[in-house]
Design a protein around this nucleic acid. Sequence first.
RNA 1: GGAGAGGUGGCCGAGCGGCUGAAGGCACUCGCCUGCUAAGCGAGUAGGGGGCUAAUAGCUCUCUCGAGGGUUCGAAUCCCUCCCUCUCCGCCA
Length: 427
Amino acid sequence: MLDLKQVRRDPGPVREALARRGAAEQLDELLRADERRRELNTRTDEVRAEHNKLSERIERAAHGGGGDDPEVAELREQSSKLKAELKQLEPELGELKRRQDELLAGLPNPPSPEAPDGDSDDDAVVLREVGERPQFDFEPVDHLELGERHGWIEMEAAARTSGSRFAYLIGDLVMVEMALVRFALETLRAQGFEPVSPPVLVREEALHGTGFFPGEREMIYEVPRDELFLVGTSEVSLASLHADAKLAAAELPLRYAGFSTCFRRESGAAGRDTRGIFRVHQFDKVEMFSFVAPDQSGAEHERILALEERILAALEIPYRVVDIPVGDLGASAARKFDCEGWIPSQERYRELTSCSNTTDYQARRLNSRYRPAESAAPEPVHTLNGTAVAVGRTLIALMENGQEGDGSVSLPSALQDLGLPERIPTV
RNA sequence: GGAGAGGUGGCCGAGCGGCUGAAGGCACUCGCCUGCUAAGCGAGUAGGGGGCUAAUAGCUCUCUCGAGGGUUCGAAUCCCUCCCUCUCCGCCA
């Protein structure tokens, strides 16, 4: 969310930044709504002030003389009139305020000047490619083929149980999942990220605070009876950990590693990635989340990206890093990098992890602030998030890149440290 | 799910219709005192929204005592709804 006061004072730069993602007109509308609201606000405050003064006079008069003084009755009369006027003004003001808030909440984060132009995947800037793509002297198969051969993935039963885009993971694959989670959490913990197992059912405010609402409502599962929503990422729960907080400068940075199941409706993705577990409604994920001082968020973004790369490298997955163009950023991100892993069956890189600098956007919505100095006024922190391991997709990359001609799968040594075999034999 | 208690400033805690944005304590900041530390003395310290202003300085108005409504000239205080916390009972992984 924008700092409205600041924008009012100097709308130029923000307008320019928002124009890059097509939100300049929305900003103009907001500024007009704000103007109207302030006018009415001033009038309402004036009436209130007068009303308060009358109440004080009544109090003094009633105390000094008798309560049924004709003068007091007269004052009461006047006061009631003002009250009636307020009853008119207040709902009007409330409506204007609501409209202004709605417009403000609907605006995305102004992108970083460094984020590339463009609005599709194709405009992403490739920063680097890392790792050797595997050379197969046989015809490689895709993850579903491998999964079914080993009895690791069961999609038909899942479809009967839950519908399309659900899967049963079975046997060795589950043990690999657990090792991946353990590996990610240990790696992150050593870097100062506190492991967290957060709630996955959240209130509307949590989604609003992280910027998923109002924009992405159709992506999210609802439980209407209890007015709860299933999170699409633990970012939502982790961000809310310090909602309405006033942190001390010395407490920052605060870093968390959330592990949770994630739920996504994938509406609008009909027909895309329908094979296997690449795009499913439910998957597990380890997510990084940082609360930092504003001048640290750039460095923290680098740090999170470096960790994502370190994990992919340790898992021996060939990957590339792309800089996401402004048009492809989520509402809350000012800048985003994706790490895309090599998927042999598709002969291309696909998104495995992602990290965003959301600057003060979520912090303002969640009211997460800190005091830069002991007696300084509190100001919003910056928040960042990044995927450590998205289990489903990482399993795909491991299976496909590690496959051997006989159908066995060799595993990275990092996972052998966690009790997995060097290679899962053919069946 | 049933019965009860409660939610006040950074924290603890008083207030239960007006002079209370809020006593008192703790914590913190600045100053004094002090060989150092502790103690002591003095001053200060909530947030949001407007207006004046070059101003993140200052002045001023307004709103906020879990949230939202209501009663009243006037509500932290009375009434209603909701949320949350705690205790007991029931149920349950």
